[in-house]
């Protein structure tokens, strides 16, 4: 009876321990000689360049929607001139980092989970080990670093497009010049709005890369497990993004705003 009650706890602790061991192995292999630069560039192309389209569209639409939704309320108070500042602070601080990270959790974490899961099932990871390569150094480290670099860059691109979207939406009803909108949007931004958001995006990248690789590496044999690895990667990465967001926002408010 006691075993039945405690077995989920034991399993959870075992998984936590395995995660910690995997993370330690990533850290160790990051500083080992022979960083796989070619694989890193390839992963930057896969995670970054191939996600630009969806990032541009999402950022642009976020800017439009945010402006259209807030415009009537601000108009009632005669505060339309605050729209550019409100849009820029919202998208830079919170909306774009989180939405882009969630999109990347769906696109990139599932891709990594499925790719590594498939390699695991077809013994390609074993073949790499036998061929003198360290699978963590070759497959995991470049993927995680590519995510940590490309997700902040995608977020910055989305920020820019969101502000442009905000300008387009403002111009549908109000006449505001491009120069004035951008001046107002950027004049309210401070160091404390941008740096914590970039750091947050780097951590989102780490979480997305890590969960994708972890689930891919731990897929059991069989094609069904590949789908399960991709699915688990998306769910875990999305939850991790939300949890990291809460923690970073709290830390930022302690350190910066107090």
């Amino acid at each position: 009876m006691a075993i039945t009650i405690f077995s989920p706890v034991t399993r959870a602790l075992e998984t936590l321990g395995d995660n910690a061991y995997f993370f330690k192995s990533i850290i160790r292999n990051t500083f080992r000689k022979g960083f796989e630069w070619n694989e890193f560039y390839r992963q930057c192309y896969n995670t970054g360049y191939k996600s630009i389209g969806i990032t541009l569209l999402t950022g642009f639409i976020l800017g439009i929607v945010l402006t259209l939704q807030s415009q009537p309320t601000l108009k009632d108070f005669g505060a339309e001139s605050f729209i550019p500042g409100m849009v820029s602070i919202s998208v830079f601080r919170e909306i774009c980092p989180v939405i882009i990270a969630l999109i990347c959790a769906g696109k990139i974490a599932s891709g990594i989970g499925a790719e590594l899961g498939s390699m695991n099932v077809t013994e390609q990871i074993d073949a790499m080990e036998v061929s003198g390569a360290n699978p963590v150094q070759f497959l995991v480290v470049p993927r995680i670093f590519a995510c940590m670099l490309m997700i902040p860059l995608l977020t910055i691109i989305a920020d820019a497009l969101a502000i442009f979207g905000g300008y387009m939406a403002t111009n549908l009803s109000e006449g505001m010049t491009f120069k004035l909108f951008f001046t107002k949007a950027f004049s309210v931004l401070e160091f404390s709005d941008i740096v914590p958001a970039v750091i947050k995006s780097v951590l989102f990248g780490l979480a997305i890369g890590f969960t994708g690789c972890w689930n891919g590496f731990n897929s059991t044999h069989g094609t069904e497990s590949v789908g399960r690895a991709a699915n688990k990667a998306v769910v875990t990465a999305s939850v991790a993004v939300i949890v990291i967001d809460v923690i970073v926002v709290q830390i930022t408010s302690w350190v910066v705003y107090s």
Partner: peptide, 11 residues
């Protein structure tokens, strides 16, 4: 050297 059952070529 190890020749794997499913060939294990890098896709």
């Amino acid at each position: 050297g190890y020749l794997f059952q499913g060939s294990a070529l890098y896709d």
